[in-house]
Amino acid sequence: MSDTSTPAAAVNVRRYRLVRNVVAVWLTVMIVAAFLRDIPRLNILEHTARNLYFHVPMWFTMMTAVFVSAYHSFQFLRTGNPLRDIRALQAARVGFAFGLMGLITGIVWARFTWYAGAGIWWNFDPRQTMAAVQLLIYGAYFVLRTAVDEPRRRGRIAAVYNLFAAATVPFLLYIVPRQMHSLHPGAEGNPAFSETDLAPAMRPIFYAAVIGFIGLFWVLYTQRVRLAVLKKRLQGDPEF
């Protein structure tokens, strides 16, 4: 109990503080620039094109989180180190939040641009479907964790489910696009710019946003891992 005041060995606190400060400044500058810098005006999109700086990086961040979570689940099965289980869970939680934000920004964006007259909120765009499925999987993952009491067994079962789900999701990449029309770049009749011809004026901020939000993911995730480890220590868990 005496070492609760010292930083958790699981997390390098000096590095965490450094990255946190850098990310705070970076994101502030990036968000200000995202709203104030001039962008090319396109019909229908107009200023909503600025959502590109927020909506797309959310997806990149969620995919990063999914990989981090699956990697730590795999390592937990391999080594049985309880810290790996904590990392997998916290990456999934933060990834869930980013996925939800990505879904909401996408739904609102589509509703008030190309569905402005139609009043459609949900459409069966492939990426939207995949995101919704990934959120459902993480929802099930969190429910599964609450259904097992013994920590080791919980970690192992949750890791198995996480990896099992990670193996099935890529199928959506191949199946859904053949059945559903996409709103996203590259598809026919899509007024958005595609990833390959993203207007040069928008590129720097877009890349900065991707790096910034992935950095934000790292900060939130590391913070949550730290918190979880400290909680375990306070509870007197012998493994921490």
Partner: peptide, 10 residues
């Protein structure tokens, strides 16, 4: 069902 259905979308 909670665990199964998200995996069965494809």
């Amino acid at each position: 069902p909670v665990l199964l259905f998200p995996l069965l979308v494809p």
